[in-house]
Amino acid sequence: MPGLVSRIKAFARSPQGRRLVAQGRSAASDPRKRSQAMQLLRRLRGRR
């Protein structure tokens, strides 16, 4: 049974994985989405 990392690599090479990676890259380059993600991380870290 393949390990988790190899399964993730295989998914990233698939057409669906490539599409998701492209969406992630475009969202990361958008300043508004980037600030929303940072706010979410701050909230999640503050709940501990």
Rank of each mutant, 00 (worst) to 15 (best):
Q23C: 01
R25S: 02
L4M: 11
A12N: 14
G46E: 12
L40N: 07
K9W: 05
A12D: 09
K33M: 12
I8W: 12
R45N: 07
G17F: 05
S14Y: 08
A27D: 04
F11M: 10
A28W: 06
A22D: 12
M38E: 14
S6I: 02
M38K: 15
R48H: 09
R13Y: 02
D30F: 04
S6K: 14
R48M: 07
L40G: 03
G24P: 02
D30T: 02
L40C: 01
Q39L: 09
K9Y: 03
P2Q: 11
R34C: 01
Q16E: 14
S6M: 10
R19E: 13
M1P: 11
S29F: 02
M1T: 10
F11Y: 15
I8N: 03
F11T: 06
L4N: 07
A10H: 11
S29N: 11
I8V: 15
R25E: 10
R25P: 00
P31D: 02
L40E: 11
L40Y: 06
I8K: 12
A12Y: 04
L4F: 13
R18T: 02
G3W: 03
K33C: 01
S14E: 09
P15L: 03
L44S: 05
F11G: 02
R32P: 00
L4T: 10
R34G: 01
P15E: 11
P2V: 04
Q39F: 01
S14F: 05
R48N: 09
D30Y: 04
Q39R: 15
P2W: 08
L4R: 14
K33L: 11
S35N: 12
S14A: 10
F11L: 12
P2L: 13
M38F: 05
K9N: 08
L41M: 14
L40K: 14
F11Q: 09
M38D: 08
Q23A: 10
R18Y: 01
R47S: 12
G24E: 08
P31W: 04
M38V: 11
A27N: 06
K9E: 12
R19C: 00
P2G: 00
R42G: 05
R32V: 10
P15K: 13
R13M: 08
A10Y: 04
R32A: 12
L20R: 15
S26G: 03
A10Q: 15
K33G: 00
V5A: 13
G46D: 13
R42M: 10
A27I: 01
L41D: 06
R47Y: 01
G46W: 05
A22Q: 13
M1A: 11
R18Q: 15
S6T: 11
R34F: 06
R25Q: 12
A22S: 12
S6W: 07
A22C: 00
G3K: 12
Q39G: 04
V21L: 15
A22N: 08
G3L: 02
L40R: 15
R45Q: 14
P31N: 03
R43C: 00
K9A: 12
L44F: 05
P31S: 04
G3E: 07
S29G: 09
R7K: 15
F11E: 08
P31R: 07
L4Y: 11
R47L: 12
L44T: 06
M1E: 09
L44P: 00
Q36D: 08
L40F: 07
Q39V: 03
M38Y: 05
R45S: 07
R42T: 03
D30I: 01
R47F: 04
A12T: 07
A12W: 06
R43P: 00
R7V: 06
A37S: 09
M38C: 00
A28L: 13
L41F: 11
S26I: 01
